[in-house]
Each structure stands twice: as structure tokens, then as C-alpha cells.
């Protein structure tokens, strides 16, 4: 290859000014890193969804009290998540977050077991929301359940 270059002075690999070539390489390299950063940063930020700030749900209406028979329950939206309101055999109303503490499925009331159950991975909660069997690691969050003019109102405990 070296012999090819004899007589072709236009193809010398040696720059006339090595210092200047190095400086330009360094500038181009920095330029490229900068451009990469200018692309990567907005793309990374774009991938993370923006937080939508909503007023935290403090209380919701959960339907009429007289239509909720003893030993049954009702699922209602509580903001973005479900809540479960249970009428005990004694007639007492209790409300909990409807999201299972294991892997966030929505729980249901099992009249045959007389407690709360999650179908996804067989998690069981008693009627105080305590995790009593299966994989759930924590109790369900408990809400206040009150009745105002036959309307059930569930609210976050303060």
C-alpha cells in the first residue's frame, strides 16, 4: 500500500498541521456528544408521563343504603381507584380501598366466605380489611362509611 502512495501527494495520511486536526477532532467530538445529549434528554423526559395533579378525592357517594342488602357489597369509583363498601350481616357499613395490596387487582366480597377476596392470586381479607390468608402483604386501606339521607358516603380517614 505504501508504494501506491508514491507519486500521489494528494493522498498522504500525514496532516500538514497535526495540532489543528486534533483540535478540530476534539471540537467535532464534543459537538457530537452535545447533540446526543440534546436528543437523549428530551426523549427520556418525554417517556416519563407527566403527573396529572388532581384534587385528592376525599369522599364519594356510593349509592343508596337501603338497596345494599346485608352480607353483600358494592364497588364504586373513588377518584381513579375502586372502593368497596360492605354491608355486614349486622347491618353495619364498612368501606375499604378496592385495590388488593398484593398486585393491585380489584377485590370482591364473597358472601359464602363472609369476607373480602381477591380472585387474581387468592388473597383473603377479613371485614376489618386485615390480610388473613394468601399473598397480600398489607391490610386494605380503610375508609369511613356514613349514611346521609339514605345515600352512602365514603370518605378518607383523616
Amino acid at each position: 500500500m505504501a508504494s501506491d502512495k508514491v507519486g500521489s501527494p494528494g493522498l498522504s495520511e500525514q496532516p500538514r498541521n497535526p495540532g489543528r486536526r486534533r483540535a478540530i477532532d476534539w471540537l467535532l467530538g464534543s459537538w457530537f456528544v452535545g447533540v446526543c445529549g440534546a436528543v437523549v434528554y428530551p426523549v427520556t423526559r418525554y417517556l416519563v408521563p407527566p403527573e396529572i395533579t388532581e384534587a385528592p378525592t376525599l369522599s364519594v357517594k356510593a349509592g343508596t343504603a337501603s338497596t345494599l342488602a346485608p352480607n353483600t357489597a358494592r364497588l364504586v369509583p373513588f377518584g381513579q381507584t375502586p372502593a368497596i363498601v360492605v354491608r355486614l350481616k349486622t347491618g353495619e357499613l364498612r368501606a375499604f380501598s378496592g385495590t388488593c395490596t398484593h398486585l393491585s387487582c380489584t377485590v370482591q366480597f364473597r358472601p359464602d366466605l363472609e369476607h373480602i377476596w381477591c380472585a387474581c392470586h387468592n388473597g383473603h381479607y377479613d371485614l376489618t380489611g386485615r390480610n388473613i390468608a394468601g399473598p397480600p402483604p398489607r391490610p386494605l386501606d380503610a375508609y369511613e362509611a356514613n349514611v346521609q339521607d339514605d345515600e352512602i358516603v365514603i370518605s378518607r380517614r383523616t
Binding site: L75, V76, P82, G98, C105, T106, A119, C120
Partner: peptide, 10 residues
């Protein structure tokens, strides 16, 4: 349905 219980046998 975002507010229904997970069905049994899922």
C-alpha cells in the same frame, strides 16, 4: 371495566 372486581378464575 375499570371499576369491576377481578373475575374468579382469572
Amino acid at each position: 371495566d375499570l371499576f369491576a372486581a377481578a373475575p374468579a378464575g382469572i
